[in-house]
Design a protein around this nucleic acid. Structure first.
Length: 414
RNA sequence: GCGGGUGUAGCUCAGUUGGUUAGAGCAUCUGGUUGUGGUCCAGAGGGUCGCGGGUUCGAGUCCCGUCACUCGCCCCA
């Protein structure tokens, strides 16, 4: 392996890839703005504790996927594997508890040491939204509506469905946890090794397993919905009613258990059938305990994150970039006048390509290659007569335009 | 972390039961056209066959290892 290869699971983004990323970010940011979100950028690395305390000691991300290193000063630092922990930390650091509700939108790279696949990289990019300080279900509805709105505006391909579940409040979850552990323990020998480990540490995750043995064991397990207390049930009902009122379709999925430990109540996931195994395009949920767990004041929150690379794969082709004008000097004597004309046109707002040498034929070829919409040819005669030859590169029509009329004549190409 | 597939020119790929100088299309460059591109014609350059080792008189082809990509498991965005 050459050391000039990019690190496994990382990619260079250029030109068209970047345009797609920017488009997704721009659309998301604009829509989020309509919902009152302001942008936040937290550092790409934090003290390791920020993640271990919030994501939970049992989550896969913490136990096997973090890029953690020790600095020269002996501090343990981790490249952020997700965005919520950093935003919550910033919320506490900034003493923002007095200013709730607050709405944060973020975008940027995340890092997870996973085995790369289609739609799964070690450095990838997310957009995300967090609404902090609203305990009621209308927050859940609005946050999900924002997500749905962005996906709709991006016109992503394939069938996207919204899966919805409730993880209940702490009381409900503890009650259910006891019942579930008891049930699963009785069928311990049917469970996969992975699930047996989870039984001790995070039993709800067993419900998420696709292992056939686990599936069979889970089949008649007590349903969480039966153990939701009244408050949790009402909350979940109101979320569903709110979504229905907004005409946002969803599917209830009792086995939807988020991988991160900080979630409670609403959990949701927008999935597609168009990306193979990596079907989750946007996911999130409510995290009422997170900020307090981190050492801040008790503050409810809800949010989501979406993978830009995955969205990008679902995006149809972007509108082509703005086509430039090509300025073409015929001989050495016209180089300087061509540079001046180019500068003038750029100041006037045009995108202009000025070739870098070669005879006229070569420069015309280059104009074609950069898909220029028109060529402005400047030769000895043109300079002498104060005109430029304007050639429409699509139609081949060509005319001599006095410099004084040039800007007006170029209007159709702007 | 586990299992399967793939790796030949810048790109997409072909390469017979192992056998001489490894091919095509596209792209690039040059010329036809020293003030006119996109079409066309002619020609040229470009490959340690992912990397390392092994078997063999001989390896792109077979074997082992390794790296990367890819599909699935897992996990998730």
């Amino acid at each position: 392996m050459s050391s000039l290869q990019p690190v496994r699971g990382t990619h260079d983004l250029m030109f068209d890839d970047m345009r797609r990323h920017r488009h997704i970010e721009a659309v998301a940011l604009e829509i989020a703005g309509r919902y009152g979100y302001g942008e936040i950028a937290t550092p790409v690395f934090e003290f390791t504790e920020v993640f271990t305390r919030t994501l939970g000691d049992t989550s896969d991300i913490v136990t096997k996927e973090m890029y953690t290193f020790t600095t020269k000063g002996g501090e343990s630092i981790t490249l952020r594997p997700e965005g919520t922990a950093g935003v919550a930390r910033a919320f506490i650091t900034g003493g923002l508890a007095q200013q709730t509700p607050l709405k944060f939108f973020y975008r940027g790279p995340m890092f997870r040491h996973e085995r790369p696949q289609k739609g799964r990289q070690r450095q990838f990019h997310q957009i995300g939204a967090e609404l902090i300080g609203v305990a009621g279900p209308q927050a859940d509805v609005e946050v999900i509506a924002l997500a749905a709105h962005i996906l709709k505006e991006l016109k992503v391909a394939g069938t996207i469905t919204l899966q919805l579940n409730s993880l209940g409040d702490v009381e409900s979850r503890l009650a259910y946890r006891d019942v579930l552990v008891k049930y699963l323990s009785e069928r311990r020998d049917q469970l996969s090794e992975e699930s047996r480990a989870r039984l001790e540490r995070n039993p709800l995750r067993v419900l998420d397993s696709k292992d056939p043995g686990d599936q069979a064991a889970i089949k008649d397990a007590p349903r969480f919905t039966q153990y939701l207390n009244e408050a949790s049930t009402t909350f979940f009902r109101e979320v569903q009613d709110g979504l229905t009122a907004l005409d946002i379709a969803f599917t209830l999925n009792p086995s939807l258990v988020r991988g991160l430990d900080y979630y409670s109540h609403t959990a949701f996931e927008f999935t597609t059938d168009a990306l193979g195994a990596q079907g989750t395009v946007l996911a999130g949920g409510r995290y009422d305990g997170l900020i307090k767990d981190m050492g801040g004041p008790q503050t409810p929150g809800i949010g989501w994150a979406a993978g830009i690379e995955r969205l990008s794969m679902l995006l149809s082709d972007l509108a082509p970039a703005k086509r430039p004008l090509a300025v073409i000097p015929v001989g050495a004597a016209e180089e300087r006048p061509a540079e001046l004309l180019t500068a003038e046109l750029r100041r006037a707002g045009f995108s202009v390509d000025l070739g870098y040498g070669g005879n006229m034929g070569k420069r015309m070829k280059r104009a074609n290659k950069v898909s220029a919409i028109a060529a402005l040819i400047l030769g000895e005669d043109e300079v002498k007569n104060g005109v430029v030859t304007l050639r429409n590169l699509d139609s081949g029509e060509q005319s001599s335009v006095p410099r004084t009329e040039l800007m007006a004549q170029l209007k159709p190409f702007a």
